[in-house]
């Protein structure tokens, strides 16, 4: 190793700086190409005029943003409309419910996984990832086969004589919720498991030794230590749920829209690309604001606790 100090501004130092820049350049390139450029395109589209045959006319217009909250009347005046706001609120509601349910299911599973002997854990983690092997669309169609009026569940219950009429299992909010919980449960299990796996299991013994029963041990030791994993799982569920499209479309019957469906329709049936682009940008901005606010708050807490 070369441990001689390098004079600042020397040729060697500049070469090293260049070297490290080259080293990270693939990452910068990927971020630029796959993140920034698409967002810029979306932003540009949102500020153009809709072409009734799809696509955009390259004329500046802020109409897309105006129509988020206002409806243009026949006399060209603007009137407030809450129809999109309601869709947004319903999306937030369903995403919140999905997140809570997946946490309730995922946390115990993650705890159980972390308690298993190391030899068995590999296999169990592998089993949890199996659903990812099949396309989400196909898996969601499979739910239709299970839930519909002549589906597996209803036919079984009818056959057993437990019910006389098929239950309305499909095409409602419950079915959407089920589909979303099913899709995102692994995203909750894995990060929580990752934090618990690193936890020293002797802490549980220490808590019990210090008179804490199971509930208090869970509340005061396991939950705080699993907190980063729980938050990561919640974000990984909540954010994609807000924009989810497949489950509401297929299992919800497309009658009650969520933001994802609304955006999708602007690019398909409605042929209003600028409005779709504006919706997508606003959704992304809202999510980012919430996450940034949260990140700043945890950082402040950490600084208050640990200094630095």
């Amino acid at each position: 190793m070369n441990s001689r100090p390098i004079a600042p501004g020397s040729a060697l130092e500049r070469r090293r700086a260049l070297g490290s820049l080259l080293g990270v350049s693939p990452a910068l390139l990927a971020i630029g190409l796959f993140l920034l450029v698409p967002i810029l395109i979306i932003a540009a589209y949102s500020l153009m005029q809709a072409n009734p045959y799809g696509g955009v006319d390259q004329v500046f217009s802020s109409e897309a943003y105006t129509s988020l909250l206002f409806e243009r009347q026949l006399d060209d005046s603007l009137a407030f409309t809450d129809s999109y706001l309601i869709i947004a609120l319903r999306s937030v509601g369903i995403a919140t419910a999905t997140t809570l349910i997946t946490l309730l299911i995922g946390f115990p599973v993650a705890v159980w996984l972390a308690m298993q002997p190391i030899r068995r854990r590999g296999l169990l983690i592998f089993l949890i990832t199996i659903p990812f092997w099949a396309n989400l669309l196909i898996r969601t169609y499979a739910w239709i086969l299970l839930l519909r009026g002549t589906g597996v569940i209803n036919n079984s219950l009818l056959g057993l004589g437990l019910i006389q009429q098929p239950l309305p299992l499909l095409y409602n909010d419950g079915a959407v919720l089920l589909g979303l919980v099913y899709t995102y449960a692994p995203f909750v299990v894995l990060p929580i498991y990752a934090t618990l796996e690193k936890m020293d299991m002797r802490l549980l013994e220490a808590a019990q030794d210090l008179y804490a029963g199971r509930l208090r041990t869970l509340r005061k030791v396991v939950l705080p230590i699993a907190r980063p994993g729980i938050l990561a799982g919640a974000i990984l569920t909540f954010v994609p749920c807000l924009g989810a499209m497949i489950a509401p479309e297929l299992l919800g019957g497309g009658t009650k829209l969520m933001l994802g469906n609304l955006i999708f329709r602007q690019f398909s049936d409605a042929r209003n690309w600028p409005f779709g682009a504006a919706l997508a940008l606003v959704l992304m901005a809202a999510v980012m604001l919430v996450l940034m606010f949260y990140a700043m708050r945890t950082e402040r807490l950490r600084v208050a606790r640990e200094g630095k």
Binding site: R202, L203, E205, A206, A207, D209, P224, I225
Partner: peptide, 13 residues
């Protein structure tokens, strides 16, 4: 009875 553990097992949080 209380225990002093070999690797202390202090609560990190």
């Amino acid at each position: 009875v209380n225990t002093v553990f070999q690797h202390y097992a202090l609560f990190p949080h």
